[in-house]
């Protein structure tokens, strides 16, 4: 946490080019304090690119990222993780040939290098129990179902105890019962005072959960504000929500 105890992530005019393609065209975004920020945008809008830049997997072409008064875009991913930014991946990435418990312990040891193994295991068990995967603790992660792996990834993240969590499409391909569990997870994480950036295609959940909604389109932020406001923003409707209708309209006219 920063000096005054309030978490602060500041993205300053970040540009990212892939060859000739400009994935991010100067994105600026500040998240101060514990918030749940929904990040939406059509495919290829640059959501995952932005995530990768915040977590250090990609270096921005220009621009800076600051976290709690420290510039982090020059740091390596593991340094950023240790400073308190955790993330999940769009496609789940459990350590497949390690057991569920070992998956949990790895970030636990990173975060608490001097804690005893038994204490860490207890902590892991508590989190796993909450996410209903505790009975799988001795299974190899690779033998779990897709949904269970997703839960494992979320559980593993809590072992790192980050201040800011970036969830990349947590609801994609998840059946409703698990969705409930993930909802509870998000609620619990919020209760612990952590900030969340939630990326999702699932409009319903993102409108219910977010306190603030940021809309990315073609590498630019086109709207930023409370969900109700953003919902009615004409630019958003045109760029994002309205597109399909427009297409349908065109099709209708064509016939």
């Amino acid at each position: 946490m920063s000096r005054n105890g309030v978490l602060e992530l500041e993205i300053r005019n970040v540009v990212k080019n892939f060859g000739g393609l400009q994935a991010l065209k100067g994105v600026s975004l500040t998240i101060r304090g514990s918030q749940l920020v929904g990040l939406i945008g059509p495919n290829g809008a640059g959501k995952t690119t932005l995530t990768n830049i915040i977590t250090g997997l990609l270096k921005p072409t220009s621009g800076e990222v600051w976290f709690n008064g420290e510039r982090i875009d020059t740091l390596r991913p593991y340094h950023i993780a240790r400073r308190g930014i955790g993330r999940t991946f769009q496609v789940t990435r459990a350590f497949r040939r390690m057991t569920v418990l070992e998956n949990m312990l790895t970030p636990g040891i990173v975060k608490h290098p001097y804690m005893s193994r038994a204490e860490l295991e207890k902590k892991a068990m508590e989190i796993m129990k909450f996410l209903t995967i505790d009975h799988l603790r001795f299974e190899r992660a690779g033998s779990l179902s897709g949904g269970q792996q997703k839960l494992l990834e979320l559980a593993r993240l809590l072992m790192l105890d980050p201040d800011l969590i970036i969830l990349d499409e947590p609801f994609a391909g998840v059946h409703p019962k698990l969705q409930r569990t993930i909802y509870n997870y998000i609620k619990r994480v919020r209760e612990q005072g952590k900030a969340i950036i939630l990326i999702s295609h699932d409009m319903e959940s993102i409108f219910t959960l977010s306190e603030r909604l940021v809309v990315l389109n073609f590498g630019e932020i086109i709207a930023d504000g409370p969900p109700e406001e953003v919902k009615n923003d004409p630019a958003v409707i045109e760029a994002y929500l309205g597109r399909d209708e427009e297409e349908e309209e065109d099709l209708r006219q064509a016939y």
Partner: peptide, 21 residues
Amino acid sequence: LFFRAVREDEEAAAALGVHVV
């Protein structure tokens, strides 16, 4: 644990704070 985590998935290990290099 770190050895195996890095071997299994370098990026995921890094995202969890494991010093890969």
